[in-house]
Each structure stands twice: as C-alpha cells, then as structure tokens.
Amino acid sequence: MSWVSKTLSSTLGQKLLMALTGLFLILFLVVHLAGNLQLLFPDGGESFNKYAATMASNPFIRVVSIGNFAFILLHVIYSIILTRRNKQSRPVAYAVSKASTNSVWASRNMGILGTIILIFLIVHLKGFYYEIKFGSVPMTSYEGVEFKDVYAIVANAYGNILYVAFYVLSMGFLAFHLSHGFASAFQTLGLNHVKYSPLIKKVGLGFSILIPALFALIPLVMFFQN
C-alpha cells in the first residue's frame, strides 16, 4: 500500500478528507448564497438571470462546479465509510445512555443531519440544476440579448407552500449540521489553540445561524411576494 492510500484508509486520514471537503462546501455555501440573494433584487430577476448565465458559461466556474460535486460525493462516501466503522466499534449498545450530559445533540447526529441534507440536495438539484440545464426553460431578453429565465423557474417553485416549507425546514437541519461541522473541521485539522479556538467556535455558531437563515429567507420572501 502506498503511503497515500495508507493515510486515506486510516481514521485520521478519512477525517481529514471530511474536514477539508466540509470546509470547501462551507465556502461554496457563501458563494452560492451571494448569488442567490440577487433573487431578492426588485428588478424582476434581471440581475439573477444575468448572473446565472455567467455561471453557466464561465470555464473556471464550470471546473469549480465539477470539483464541488466531487467534494460532495467524497464527503458523503467517507461519511458512510466512517459511520459504518463507528457502528462496528460498538457492537453491543448500552441499555441506558445519558449522552446528552456530555455532548450536544448535533455533534452526535451528524450522519442523520447529513442524510437529510443529502435528500434536500437531490430534490434541489432535480428541481433547479437539472431543469435549468436539461429541461425546457422559458427565455427572456434584456437590451436585446436572450437569457434563460431561470428566475421564472425559481419563482414558480417558490409559489408552492410545501416546497417552501421543505426548503425552510432543510435549512434548519443545515444549521444544526454546520453548528458542529464548522468548528469540528478546524479541530480535525489540528487547529486548536487557546487563543483562536474560542473565536472559531463563535464564528462557527454565527455562520451556522446566519447562512441557513438567509438561504431560508429567499423562498419565504418570494412566496409572500407572489
């Protein structure tokens, strides 16, 4: 076995992959949110549609987006490998357990939270990414240039109260996932220091509330605007 595969088959190596892919996905969330907030501009979706077009055509963005999919996949695959191993490490469960007295719920349920987020992701990609890329998208034009009217698809989806509820709920789960995942990734990378760790924890907590809240705001606002 080469040293690389040996490292990646160790629990620490696998945790390292989880942390690195997790941190990348955290960055992605920020970029994605920045773009999506344009949905709220009162311009009938013009800036959002232009932004969507840029995203679809820019070669750099396309490379990153492939990387993004790969990282999501890696994050999922390694979480499955690790969870299986972790389950096998305790074949007989305790009859009584008071885990809530020594750790927070989210930290013990990252697998469940992750699974819910994965389901959300599949619905989300099916509803938007797939539709926009391969479905029939209405067109619109600004100053004589034709654009895919992605905004219309989004607005249509967010007109459905069930869809909105599903989105908002999913962002709640994402918040919990991030509330542990953010600081945990730094700990896994070995970045624990008396001076900086309290700050990382605070930023992580703020991030885990703010980002999902803003994400959830978009469907809510659009639903009530309709």
């Binding site: 629990t11 620490l12 696998q14 945790k15 690790l82 191993r85 972790n86 096998q88 490490s89 305790r90 885990a99 007295t101 020594n102 750790s103 927070v104 930290s107 013990r108 990252m110 542990h180 600081a183 945990s184 700990q187 896994t188 070995g190 970045l191 624990n192 220091h193 008396v194 760790s197």
Partner: peptide, 25 residues
Amino acid sequence: GFGACTNTGACEAECPKGISITNIA
C-alpha cells in the same frame, strides 16, 4: 478496531482526569 473521532467532546467531559481534546488536535 476503535472508532473514528466525531469531535463530540464526550470523552473530555467524562474523563476523570480532565484530559483535554486539544490533545486530539
């Protein structure tokens, strides 16, 4: 055959000698 670390901090909270998880980092 020990499991991996999820950074829950349960070990530190229960350690009778108060060993810190900064050691894990």
